[in-house]
Amino acid sequence: MLIKDVCKKCKLTKKAVEYYEQQGLISPAVEDNGYRNYSDEDISVLKEIGTLRKLGISIADIKNILASTNKAAALAKCKYKMDLEVEKAMAKKKCLEQLMDDYNIDQAITYIEENIEKHFTIKEKLLQAFPGGYGMYLCIHFGQFLNGKIDTEEKEEAYNKIVDYLDTVSKIEFPKELEEYLLQGLGQLEKIDMQRINSSIINAVNNIDIYLKENKEDIGKYLEYRNSDEYKKSPACKMQQLLLQFQQESGYYDIFIENLKILSDSYREYLEKLQVANKTFVDKYPQIDNIYKL
C-alpha cells in the first residue's frame, strides 16, 4: 500500500509516517521505482503508534512497548509515569488554591518542598535553579539525559556539587544579542521536535561509521562553512567561543562533567560512546581540531 492510502487508513499525516520510519518504528519495503510499499504489518504498527501517541506516550516508550512481549507490563510503566505527573499536577493545583485563599508564601514554600519537589526531574530542578539563558543552555545540551530523578545519596551529592559549581564559577555572561539568539534557537528547536534532534545525535554516535559514510558531502560543507568568514562573524561563532573559553578556564570537565556522569547513568553511557565516535571522526577529519581551538 502506498503512503497516501496509508495516511487515510491510519489517520496520520505523511510527515508523521515518515518520522516514524526515521525512528525505526516501521520498515516498509522500497520498490525499484523508489516508492515505499507498506505492508499490513506496517499499517498495524502505525495504528498502534498513533493510538499510543494520542495517549501522550513518548517515542522512546513506544519503542519499548512495540518490542515488548508483555504489552501490559510495558504499558504499566507508562501509567506509573503518568500517575506521578498527575500527582504532581494535583499538588500544584492544591498549592495554588491555598495561595488564592491566603497568600502565604512561607506556607507555600513548605508545601512545595514537602509535596511537589520530590516529583521534579533533574532537568526541572536545574531549570528552576538557573533560569534564563544559562538554564536553557543546560536544557538544550543535556536535557535528554536529565529526565530521571535524584534517588540516591550519591546522586544528591553529585547534584549539589553541580549546582554549587555552576553558581560560584565565573559563569558566562551572555550579551543581550546572544541571549536573544539562544532564545530564538530554543523556540525553533521546539517546533522542529527536540526529541527527533536528540535521537539523530544519539543514532550518529551509536553508528559513527555509517553516519560518516552517509553524510560525507554534508560534513564537507559543514567544515567548509565553519572555516568561512561568514561563520566567524556570526552570533553562533561568538557563542561557541564564549562556551569554549568557559570550558577551558573553569573546572567544567573535572567538576561538572564528572558529577554529571554520577547523576545520570544515561549520560555516562553516552559519553563513553561519544569519546569513541569523536576519535573516529577526528581520525577521518583531522581539520576538525582547528575548529574547536580558541
Rank of each mutant, 00 (worst) to 15 (best):
E180V: 08
L146H: 02
K191P: 00
S39D: 04
L75C: 10
E154G: 00
N33A: 12
I43G: 01
Q184A: 12
M90Q: 13
E85C: 10
L242A: 01
Y231L: 05
S234I: 04
A60C: 04
V45S: 01
Y19W: 06
L99K: 08
L166Y: 05
A236M: 09
E249S: 13
Q98T: 08
E214T: 07
R196G: 04
S250M: 11
I201D: 05
K238E: 07
S250E: 08
S199I: 12
T280Y: 01
V282W: 03
E217F: 07
N37E: 09
N207P: 06
D164Q: 08
Q98F: 14
E97A: 10
K79Q: 14
E177K: 13
V169E: 09
I201L: 11
K213I: 06
Y225S: 05
K293R: 15
I43E: 00
L271D: 15
I192V: 15
S266N: 09
F130I: 03
E18K: 10
Y267I: 04
L146Q: 02
K15N: 14
E258K: 15
E272S: 08
L242F: 05
V205D: 01
D32S: 14
Y80T: 13
Q128A: 09
D218R: 09
A72E: 15
E173M: 10
A277L: 06
E113L: 07
Q241F: 00
P28W: 00
A73T: 07
E41M: 06
E258R: 13
K15A: 14
A60W: 05
V30S: 02
P131R: 09
K14V: 15
D265V: 13
L55P: 03
Y222R: 10
G251S: 11
K216E: 15
